[in-house]
Simulated assay, not measured.
Amino acid sequence: MKPNGRVVVVTGGTRGVGAGIARAFAETGAQVLVCARRPPDAPVPRTRFQPLDVRDADAVRHFFTALPRLDVLVNNAGGAPHRPLAHADAERHLRVLELNLLAPLTVSLAAHDHLRRSRGSVVMIGSVSGSRPSPGTAAYGAAKAGLENLARSMAVEWAPDVRVNTLVVGMVRTERSPLHYGDDDGIAAVSRTVPLGRLAEPSDVGAAAVFLASRAAAYITGASLLVHGGGERPAFLDAATANREN
């Protein structure tokens, strides 16, 4: 499971989940290049940073043309602010779709020749938001649903030379968690809704990404691996239990 010596690119790899993924690959001995619009506040050890806006197609193509080799691409860059649909126009929501769906396609296409030569792999970082309602982040959820479908089609078109899989990620504890879940008490309360009793750590996602890119997953392509701690406890269970107790 150790991709020693391989070259790995992680988009959005400067913080949070992306930094966890970059760190996990670096620990295997891989040469890891992280790219984002801004440099990290705290560089991930044993990785190199290069600025890149994945929404700039020309810059993306130039970035990959300049690489001598590529074995693994992790499409992690993404995200969205909390914004109810009716609180913004379609153009604003389109920006979310561009970052979370069109950009991974642009990056993957630019990396394809390298990956075909190395018989490498692509790991898409998806989200549970792509398979359930996502009020407040509807465009993000739609983009992640599209990303998972894109990966399955890409896996068929690019086989047998390039494997393409998706990590469907649940809630992760990062430096930005307080913005989403509140203080420590809020995070603890949210954690109790997860069957495993905690939020994921970036290292959990990183370990799963390393697995999908490894020889141990050589026969896995077009797959979606759930990294969500068992999902979310259905709200109706608690409501039904409370009703019986009353």
Rank of each mutant, 00 (worst) to 15 (best):
L101Q: 01
L105W: 05
T106C: 02
V107E: 03
S108M: 05
S108G: 13
L109Q: 15
A111Y: 01
H112W: 11
R117M: 15
R119A: 15
V122N: 14
V123C: 04
V123P: 01
S127C: 10
V128L: 10
V128T: 15
S129C: 09
G130T: 05
S131W: 11
R132K: 07
R132W: 07
G136S: 03
G136N: 00
A139T: 00
Y140V: 00
A142F: 09
K144S: 02
K144D: 11
K144A: 03
L147K: 00
A151D: 10
V156K: 05
W158V: 05
P160V: 03
N165L: 13
L167Y: 07
V169D: 02
V169W: 09
G170E: 12
M171C: 01
M171N: 11
R173H: 11
R173M: 04
T174V: 03
T174Q: 02
E175H: 05
S177D: 11
S177A: 12
L179Q: 12
D184R: 10
D185E: 15
A188I: 00
A188H: 01
A188D: 11
V190L: 06
S191W: 02
T193K: 01
S203N: 04
D204V: 04
A208R: 11
L212D: 08
L212A: 08
L212I: 13
L212V: 10
L212T: 11
S214N: 04
R215Q: 07
A217C: 12
A218E: 08
Y219I: 02
I220Y: 14
A223E: 14
L226R: 15
G229H: 10
G230C: 00
E232C: 01
R233A: 09
R233H: 15
L237G: 06
D238P: 01
D238W: 00
A239Q: 04
A240V: 08
A242K: 12
R244L: 13
